[in-house]
């Protein structure tokens, strides 16, 4: 054991929590993808040295309390209205780095109009979109992004296309809008995917500095409590079922 004590010394440190993340214990369920994405955003902000210049817009949903975890300036939007608020903040402070952090219930359901028009106007913001195909915060109800046949609290026999319509693949719609410059879909289920996702988020934030228009990063995520699976099993389920519908990769890069 003395061997390990020799290794655990300050000069040998290769990875630790970024200072942009606060010391608060996150309220998310064990294994929730939100924690990983929060960390990636925080790390990108630290690496770019823009902590003083970043303004986040937190949504309604599980990540409503994101302002407790990232040590930057925040605004809290009404449900789905984060892109509208981000527009206002960005126009009042064009030199700041403004990003919204939204879930699928927020962005793809009640906030569809706001996100579409913000992206169409090409507001100079970053949108981080967490898509776990369910309303996690309120107890696992069906969302617009819920997959066909997927069981949720409000679709106990599985989503029926005739009754509930098709899963809304909103990122493909947004990629068609001329205002967006960078649209990508990522995931955070493996170390390699996390590294790739971080690069995408970094690129999105760099686009703000270059005034390129809206950058949209979807992160296909898990909701292990809503899906009633363990965190490890959720990741496997996501790869098997979510990826065929929500294919990871860059949709647009101009």
């Amino acid at each position: 054991m003395s061997d390990i004590k020799d290794i655990i010394k300050d000069e040998n440190l290769v990875y630790k929590k970024t200072k942009v993340l606060t010391d608060n214990v996150m309220h998310y369920c064990p294994g929730c993808s939100h924690g990983v994405v929060h960390k990636l955003v925080a790390e990108v902000i630290e690496e770019m040295g823009i902590q003083e210049k970043t303004i986040g817009i937190s949504p309604v949903g599980c990540s409503v309390l994101a302002y407790n975890y990232l040590d930057i300036d925040w605004q809290e939007a009404a449900h789905g209205r984060a892109p509208a608020l981000a527009t206002a903040v960005n126009r009042l402070h064009p030199e700041k780095y403004v990003f919204t952090y939204q879930g699928d219930g927020d962005l793809a359901s009640i906030g569809t109009a706001e996100i579409m028009h913000a992206c169409n106007r090409g507001e100079n913001i970053v949108v981080i979109f967490i898509n776990n195909a369910i309303y996690g915060m309120t107890g696992g109800q069906m969302a617009p992004t819920t997959l066909e046949g997927m069981k949720t609290a409000t679709s106990p026999y599985g989503r029926d296309i005739k009754l509930n319509g098709h899963p809304l693949i909103i990122t493909e719609l947004i990629a068609q809008l001329p205002g967006t410059s960078y649209v990508t879909r990522q995931a955070v289920h493996t170390p390699a995917a996390v590294r790739k996702c971080k690069k995408a988020i970094r690129k999105a934030f760099e686009n703000i500095g270059q005034k390129k228009g809206t950058s949209f990063v979807e992160v296909v995520s898990t909701c292990n409590s809503g899906w009633k699976l363990s965190p490890v099993k959720s990741n496997e389920w996501m790869v098997e079922n979510m990826f065929p519908v929500y294919k990871p990769g860059d949709l647009k890069d101009e």
């Binding site: 390990i4 440190l13 290769v14 929590k17 064990p30 990983v36 960390k39």
Partner: peptide, 28 residues
């Protein structure tokens, strides 16, 4: 916890995927 500490290569994969950022990694 480290059940098999001798095998650790300090790659930081565990810390990168940790949603709660509770892991610090050291390497020599």
């Amino acid at each position: 916890y480290m059940a098999n500490p001798d095998a650790c290569i300090g790659c930081a994969n565990c810390a990168i995927v940790c949603p709660d950022s509770v892991i610090e990694v050291y390497k020599v």
